[in-house]
Nucleic acid binder design. Sequence first.
DNA 1: GCTGAAATCTGTCGGCG
DNA 2: CGCCGACAGATTTCAGC
Lengths: 165, 165
Amino acid sequence: MAESVVLDTVDLQILRLLQNDARTTYRELAAEVGVAPSTCLDRVTRLRRTGVILGHQLRLDPAKLGRGLEALLLVQVRPHRRELIGPFVERIRALPESRALFHLTGPDDYLVHVTVADPADLQRLVLDEFTSQREVARVETRLIFQQWECGPLMPPGAGPSLSAV
Amino acid sequence: MAESVVLDTVDLQILRLLQNDARTTYRELAAEVGVAPSTCLDRVTRLRRTGVILGHQLRLDPAKLGRGLEALLLVQVRPHRRELIGPFVERIRALPESRALFHLTGPDDYLVHVTVADPADLQRLVLDEFTSQREVARVETRLIFQQWECGPLMPPGAGPSLSAV
DNA sequence: GCTGAAATCTGTCGGCG
DNA sequence: CGCCGACAGATTTCAGC
């Protein structure tokens, strides 16, 4: 599980470029980074094998899919025991409205990022899937005005090379 | 901006498959969906052009990049006026630790998802980039025990067809 | 890590239903 | 008008060095 991975500048440049556009061809990567296309393929294959790259994801516009309203739900699950939170997590993950789920420290045990059609849809979701459940002690709903994805994920102090576990 | 988009079962199947693996070839998509590869290309091109597909993203493992600790920061920005929140948002987005930023309703104005190396790194981030700033009235830090991405994003009541805006 | 070549894929085009 | 099938160009992938 704790496999050691060493990343050099070539790896980091490739990752930065692919985060900018995950469909960049090996040819283009090679031209930018200054190595052969096959080397880029080798690097990317290794980054996938070692688990640095987890996968390629499609970014969709929820509004275009009829889910123009987004919200974060802060949820207390009580009692906070494995027998209850296991099924809770699986149930929430399976909801078509759920985009992401976080298990947190602090007064709220879980944060759920949901996408719904409109306020009525959100109300239905909160009432039918959260507050109606025995293990859900409290739900706090926060609407999302706007959201931003931030810059590329890079190692701290992105020097010329580093080792991570 | 409010371009009308109609999605049929073929589009929805393609989106579902591409969310599972964004690098699925048109050939494979065609085989699964039961249409010609060129038709899949046409559909995907149209989905890109109409803004349903926003782009292709690389999913990376923060832990493998030396950012094994993740947290959510709840931030109050006061006074909550455009002159202050504009620069605040840009500054937070530019931090290498920031993964995502949400502008919310409720007592906390912003939620920031951050990835750091360790608790000392988190402490530095909170003190130097948040509480030290004049406009930041309050910061609440919640560590992330575990997180899950949820199922594919699909339209509400994913019937055989739908129209979205 | 590179080169080069084979296999595969992408994207275009004209035609068909 | 959208779907199909074939084609040319580009990309991926794999030996061998």
